[in-house]
Amino acid sequence: MSFSSFVFYLFALILLGSALRVITARNPVHCVLYLVLSFASAAGLWVLLEAEFLAIALVLVYVGAVMVLFLFVVMMLDINIERLREGYWDYLVPALAVAGVMVVEMLVVLGGRYFGLLEMPQPEAVAAGHSNTRDLGRVLYTFYAYPFELAAVVLLVAIIAAIALTLRSRKDTRYQNPSQQVGVRKADRVRVLNMPSEKQANGS
């Protein structure tokens, strides 16, 4: 077994193990941390496939940004784990049956007969200094310009939808209006009273 196969199996095992723990761990924070681990192992696999840009993007974007945000949300929420787990065992048997059938089907089709090295030969190795970041950038903004713009529109819709669904402007909320605060003059707030001085009553 060559060294790269060894690394592949190592990452693959860690990936599968941590992915399994994501759905079986009892504590939601642990689930998120296992998900981080599985993303990191997937990034390792991508490096093996010489897709460095994707691997780095996965670590930077998913692990660095998305999962950290996720972790914050999970820690903030008061999740009732017992209620979430209700019916877990009831659904397990049919779910396993469906999953088993799908695994068998996929093994039949995805096995070496159709997608083996004979059918899908290994691509030629690229030169040492080859940058696939440059390649990706080149096709992304030329050949795939139209889908790229569409993806931007999808993100715009996601932003609008998220704001429309979560922004609540309640009438009874008290808030400060900075422009009004700045525009306040002394005369509005301070009233100088002219009171006649009083004679202090003689102490008892």
Binding site: V153, V157, A158, A161, L165
Partner: peptide, 8 residues
Amino acid sequence: LLSLSLYA
């Protein structure tokens, strides 16, 4: 694009 808008 269609589905996301409809969900919202």
